[in-house]
Design a protein around this nucleic acid. Structure first.
Length: 237
DNA sequence: TCAAGGATCCGCT
DNA sequence: GCGGATCCTTGAA
């Protein structure tokens, strides 16, 4: 059965205004990956806003660089970067050209294509296994990694910025992709009309300890209250 | 609690 | 141009 999606391409104007308004609007929207392997759809349940060169937690704090150039472009495009050497993170560019703001997609609740996401997570985990040590039991390690992923509840398949990219096969090749174009293999869609209502919660962003106040404490992280797919701060693990 | 991993940036020459 | 520090994380121990 064809998904009810592909008709509700996300309106770019919802991303062109104030960053926090964009974050509020995007929470609950759908992330869609449509490629040769099939269709994967998830609901965005956690976001963080990074708001321009003045925001000392944002990559834009260095000004325009080759890495962050996409963020300085028009809203609705994907900004994908590598962090800690091994994790890709997906951001949605917001605010008008030249403002260099973006929303980091931290968590997604799987809706369709859960098996594809699980398979992608397995492949990703096995890929990581290859880089670990020199052990001759690499195959065993990979098998164990597959087993761990297989045991995960669906809600944990994309509950973290690196995991979102793993589950949706997002890489830096996707950087610059137009997420407001329904024909794009990776794009956003409005929430389905029948989606349940939810409450929003706000708090400080995660992993930006290097940033000074007031940026450190800005409540620019927003998530769906009580949703099991929300990653939350590490201290909750 | 800690190691893994590599792109990116800054400061220095 | 080069070298070192840093980093929007994760999973294993």
């Amino acid at each position: 059965m064809a998904p009810a999606s592909f008709q509700n391409a996300y309106p770019r104007e919802l991303l062109a205004g104030d960053g926090l308004a964009s974050a509020n609007a995007l929470l609950g929207a759908q992330l869609v990956r449509n490629d040769a392997s099939g269709v994967r759809v998830g609901r965005i349940v956690e976001l963080e806003a990074y708001r321009g060169p003045d925001d000392k937690a944002s990559h834009a704090r260095f000004g325009r660089t080759s890495r962050s150039a996409v963020m300085f472009g028009p809203p609705g495009h994907a900004y994908v970067y590598l962090v800690y050497g091994m994790y890709d993170c997906l951001n949605v560019v917001i605010e008008p050209s030249g403002r260099a703001a973006a929303l980091l997609v931290r968590s997604v609740e799987p809706l369709e294509g859960v098996d594809l996401m699980r398979h992608a997570r397995e492949e990703w985990a096995v890929g990581r296994a290859g880089g670990r040590g020199s052990s001759s039991d690499g195959a065993a390690w990979a098998a164990a990694a597959r087993q761990r992923v297989a045991a995960l509840p669906a809600a944990r398949l994309a509950s973290g910025p690196g995991l979102v990219c793993a589950a949706f096969s997002v890489g830096r090749d996707d950087g610059g992709a137009d997420l407001c174009d329904a024909a794009s293999p990776l794009h956003l869609e409005l929430a389905a009309p029948g989606d349940p209502a939810f409450e929003r919660e706000f708090g400080p962003r995660i992993g930006i300890g290097y940033a000074p106040e007031p940026w450190l404490g800005k409540p620019w992280r927003v998530w769906v209250a009580g949703n099991p797919a929300v990653s939350g701060p590490r201290t909750r693990r």
